[in-house]
Amino acid sequence: MPDAGPEIYLLAGVALFVTGVDSLLAQSHPLRRIMALNVMGSGVFLVFITLAARTPGAVPDPVPHAMVLTGIVVSVCATGLALALADRLPPATGKTRLEHRPDTPNSPPDRRKEEGE
């Protein structure tokens, strides 16, 4: 483990996570959101890995590594699912953006108008 101590990695991980959350909320394009989620995930994994080496000098704990591997598998699946859904979305709605309408699921938009997008 480098001498800088694990704190910097922890902070970096948390920063990545927060960046991801921010983009997830701010961006509306599915692709950007998928990337935001992946950034969040990377942040979490970084925190995991850092915590594996919390006692300097000792052999890093293998358990978090195993967890991160599992987590990566899960996150690849999630990305795949999200991409598949995002791929279906434009033809159905005629749009590439998700509008933000929390409680009103009805009223499909006029498709033909935006089909060329």
């Binding site: 997830l24 959101r33 989620l37 995930g41 915590l51 978090p64 859904l85 009805n106």
Partner: peptide
């Protein structure tokens, strides 16, 4: 409707899971 709802559900679900996972870490 269904696809939009599914997509929104997916965002909430994935982001929420990552919050949970950070807690686990």
């Amino acid at each position: 409707e269904a696809l939009t709802a599914a997509m929104r559900y997916l965002w909430v679900s994935l982001a929420a899971s990552l919050f949970y996972l950070l807690g686990v870490a």
